[in-house]
Structures are given as structure tokens and as C-alpha cells.
């Protein structure tokens, strides 16, 4: 029992990070119906921004988090402005391929500039707690706490603010809504800012939890979070969170009870089964098909 409780803590930590990255995919998809394949690499860049900022200025954790989110967010918005906006009326696939290309450019640029893996500085001293045989560290509590706070904050922003309403409106109909006076480009820029910012925050938390960072770290995690977003129902904010936690749970629990070589096999087969029975994800809605 204790063993499974410990594995559950591991799963929640992993799931929280997947969920945070998945949010970025879902947010952008919800507004633009475009998969931002560069998101996994923005996540990696977030970890590197944290490394740079933390090694230059000894700032408190919260300030660094905000700076990382802002810098990654602006990078995301910049990419949207330069690479995606000119393609908004082009076939959807062009935008996806551009995103894939941007991701590869970012990843390999970082790996060219910093070929060696880098150790992540500890931003505060980590204390471990022992609760009746369960070990949990202050870092884990922080990661889970910050992730949940960001998710709740985002949900509030989307549902309760006028800007969030504008985002939902554009996601509902991106042709008519701008005619009603909602600034389309501004809303999309802000969407990318938030999405990439969340990715950057996830990168920073991930870097703290797994403190060796390298340019290649974004690829695998990025694809997995993308799967999480789709399982939850891409475009749905709450779905992304659910998908992230499910993926974390499935990955950890297959290792917990079966030989660890089967992890990917079982995790992805299960996700495939979910998608066969719920083709639009757990919380996603089938798109309106116009005939």
C-alpha cells in the first residue's frame, strides 16, 4: 500500500508537468485549430532561460518563474508573428509543417550553442519529508503546487475575464468574431504568449526536478504531452489537465506492476484504445462538420 502511495506521488508529479505542457498545445489549438509542434522545444528553452537567469542574478524563485514565463512567452509570440501569422490563410498543413520546422530549428540551435548537457542550479535547498514511510520533498510539493495554481489561474482567465471570453469567441468562430470588433491578432498573440509561458514554466519546473538539462529534452516530453492533450480532447483546457495526469499515472503504474520494458508499449496501446472509443478525446467535442 505504501509502495503504491509512493508511486502515486511520482505519478502526480510527472502528470502535473505533462498537464502543464499539454495546456499550451490545447490553448493554441483551441484558438487557432493548429498544432504548435514547436511547443516541446519552447518547453526546453524555458529550462535554459531559467538556467541563464538564475546563474546571472540570484533572484527569489517566484521572480525567476515570472521572468522565465515572460521570456518564453515572448519567444512564442514572436514565432507566431514571424512564422505562423503569414500562413494563417494557407492550408493548415503548411502551418503544422512550419511549426515542426521551427521546433527543429530551436532544438538544434540550442544544441549547437550548448552541445553539452548542463547542470541546473538548485534555486533553494530541497528538504525531504518522511510521512510514515512515504518520501516527499519540498521540491515535489512546489512543482505540484505551482502547476495546479497555474492551471486554476488559466481556467479562471479563460472563463471569467473578458479577454478569455474573446479567446473563446475566436475559437468558436474565427471569421465572424473579428467583424464584431474583437482584435484577432492581439488575441492570438496573447494566446501564444500564455501558451508558451506555461510551457516555459513547465520547462523550469522540469529542469528543477530533473536537474540535467539538454537541448534534446523537449522532444520526447513534448510529444508525450501532445498525446496527453489529444487524449484529454485537444482544444479543451480541462481535458489537457485530465490527459496529462492520466498519462503520468499510466506511465508510472505500468512500471510499478509490470517489467519496466513494457512501459511505452502499454501506455501507448492504452491511449490508442481510448482514442478508438472516444475519437475526440475524453473531454473534447466533435467539431462541427459543415456539409
Amino acid at each position: 500500500m505504501e509502495y503504491f502511495a509512493q508511486q502515486a506521488i511520482n505519478a502526480i508529479q510527472l502528470g502535473a508537468i505533462y498537464a502543464l505542457i499539454a495546456l499550451g498545445y490545447s490553448l493554441v489549438y483551441g484558438v487557432l485549430t493548429m498544432i504548435n509542434f514547436a511547443h516541446g522545444d519552447l518547453f526546453m528553452v524555458g529550462a535554459f532561460f531559467c538556467l541563464i537567469i538564475a546563474s546571472l542574478f540570484p533572484l527569489p524563485f517566484v521572480v525567476i518563474l515570472v521572468l522565465v514565463m515572460l521570456s518564453t512567452g515572448f519567444l512564442g509570440a514572436l514565432i507566431e508573428r514571424v512564422a505562423y501569422r503569414p500562413l494563417r490563410s494557407a492550408p493548415r498543413v503548411s502551418a503544422i509543417i512550419t511549426a515542426l520546422g521551427c521546433g527543429l530549428v530551436i532544438e538544434n540551435l540550442v544544441s549547437s550553442l550548448s552541445p553539452y548537457a548542463k547542470p541546473m542550479p538548485a534555486l533553494f535547498s530541497v528538504t525531504g519529508y518522511n510521512l510514515g514511510g512515504l518520501s516527499i520533498s519540498s521540491l515535489q510539493i512546489l512543482i505540484i503546487g505551482v502547476s495546479i495554481l497555474l492551471m486554476v489561474g488559466l481556467d479562471f482567465f479563460i472563463r471569467r475575464t473578458s479577454f478569455g471570453m474573446a479567446m473563446r469567441a475566436i475559437s468558436f468562430d474565427s471569421r465572424t468574431v473579428p467583424l464584431l470588433g474583437i482584435p484577432l491578432n492581439k488575441v492570438i498573440s496573447v494566446t501564444f504568449l500564455i501558451g508558451a509561458g506555461l510551457g516555459g514554466a513547465a520547462g523550469m519546473l522540469y529542469g528543477l526536478a530533473y536537474p540535467v538539462i539538454a537541448a534534446s529534452m523537449g522532444v520526447l516530453v513534448g510529444w508525450k504531452a501532445f498525446i496527453a492533450a489529444v487524449v484529454g480532447g485537444i482544444g479543451s483546457i480541462r481535458g489537457a489537465v485530465v490527459g496529462g495526469f492520466i498519462l503520468g499515472l499510466v506511465e508510472v503504474m505500468t512500471v510499478a506492476v509490470l517489467p519496466s520494458t513494457y512501459r511505452d508499449l502499454i501506455a501507448y496501446s492504452l491511449l490508442l484504445v481510448i482514442l478508438i472509443f472516444k475519437p475526440y478525446g475524453l473531454l473534447g467535442k466533435a467539431p462541427n462538420q459543415k456539409v
Binding site: W223, V230, I234, Y268, S269, L271, L272, L275, G281
Partner: peptide, 8 residues
């Protein structure tokens, strides 16, 4: 969604 199925 098809993309994700092929990925899986």
C-alpha cells in the same frame, strides 16, 4: 486525431 493515432 489521425495524426495522433499514427504517432501512437
Amino acid at each position: 486525431y489521425l495524426a495522433i493515432i499514427t504517432l501512437a
